[in-house]
Computed example of a mutant assay.
Amino acid sequence: MSSYKTRASWSALPMFFEEPHRALGAQVDRSVTDDDVALHDAPRVIPRLAELGLLKLLVPQSHGGGAWGHGGKGVDVRALSVTREALAYASPMADSIFAVQGLGSHPILLAGEAEKRAKVLAEVVNGQRVCAFALTEPEAGSDVASMRTVARREGDDWVLDGEKVFISNVGIADHYVIFANADPEKGKKGISAFLVETSTQGLVTEPIAMSVEHPLGRISLKGCKVPGSALLGEVGHGLRLALGTLDVFRTSVGAAAVGMARRALDEAIARTTTRVQFGKPLSDFQLTQAALAEMATELDAARLLVFRAAWEKDQPADEASRKNSATSVAMAKMFATEAAQRIIDRAVQLFGGLGVTDRCVVDRLYREIRPLRIYEGTTEIQKLIIGGALVAPVK
């Protein structure tokens, strides 16, 4: 663990934060540490996050969550982002599990079913229920509309058939929000969302091995029968629920990337100031200082983009500001994840041979950062969003 620690973003960016955000940042930075064993053991992560009170950030105060934003009626994106940066700094796995806990519960809020499913949300906040979000399929990644999983009516029940892949929290989840087309003739307008308990007959999970320790897997649905009450919202509302959920959490992906990059920079500074080569510390060489300067500058640029986007997401929005916010979120997600990849790669280079050994922090970060450039909208998708907004005709 590096003895050096870069300044916390929430205290350095007062224009984007209110006092509760700064207090939260300081609290999470103190309480979330690399040596907290529970944050590196998948089954223990959610109970530990509940103990720390962080799961309250995933549910509005009006429905049993924390006192954040929107008059207690919404999820505060700045609070999510501050938390994810601190979590990713200490344990990228804990950060990922935390994020998916939000993805797997937020559709309930968007569907207007918070009161109907108050027990579920209470269990989410208390750490008694682990959530998952099952959208991706073998042939439907960025192109969500090409989804092949279907749902058909059978009396008062629904029967789901299909396959989901690269689903986080497989193996530890208590329920999955599963997206399936309930009216294929209508194309994407038939996509619907279902809250399916892990124990449901016809739902089979299989782990997928990764290069890092993350609960990830495949879900097979074969005649998976769920009650009519499993439907979230109405038939055909699934795509809106999926994209609306991703829209809230996408900014915080950039914050997680910032957390990992900040950890890599700290580790690189600690390494280069203590390792002596050719009679002096590596940090005395101009090339080393130049590398650290580029890393620090990219880190600050990424942080500024991320927290600008988070601030915009937390403001009351009309149609024009929502479009601007979507562009800011895409810029933040794209730049922060790509910059973090470069920063971490440079940290590995500065570590030399030690940087590619399996017990080295920067080696772990090198493997942890790569998926962030893919999930919740690839870098290429973010470029399409940004470019499309730039050339869109003015109305």
Rank of each mutant, 00 (worst) to 15 (best):
F17N: 07
G387E: 14
N181G: 08
T149Q: 00
V196E: 02
L390F: 11
V204F: 00
K164N: 14
G202V: 07
L287N: 10
I385Y: 08
S3A: 12
S321W: 13
R262S: 12
A140D: 01
S3V: 14
R84N: 11
E197G: 11
S199L: 01
H214G: 03
I381S: 07
L49A: 09
L239C: 05
A264R: 10
G217V: 08
M260Y: 07
L55A: 08
L384K: 14
H214V: 15
R271N: 12
I369Y: 02
G127T: 05
T378V: 02
A99I: 11
I97E: 10
G104L: 06
G387P: 03
D284S: 14
T357L: 14
V361D: 01
P207V: 12
A291S: 15
K225R: 15
A317G: 01
R364H: 13
K395E: 06
M147R: 00
R78C: 11
R250T: 15
A79M: 09
G102T: 09
A268G: 06
P14A: 06
A309G: 08
I219H: 06
S199M: 08
I386K: 03
E51R: 15
E338H: 03
E312I: 00
T288Q: 03
G171A: 04
R263H: 13
S142I: 12
T6D: 12
V391C: 01
G244F: 05
I386S: 10
L231F: 12
D143L: 12
A290N: 11
L87E: 07
S168F: 04
I46D: 02
K186W: 00
G141R: 12
V125N: 06
K395N: 12
V59H: 05
V124M: 03
W68K: 01
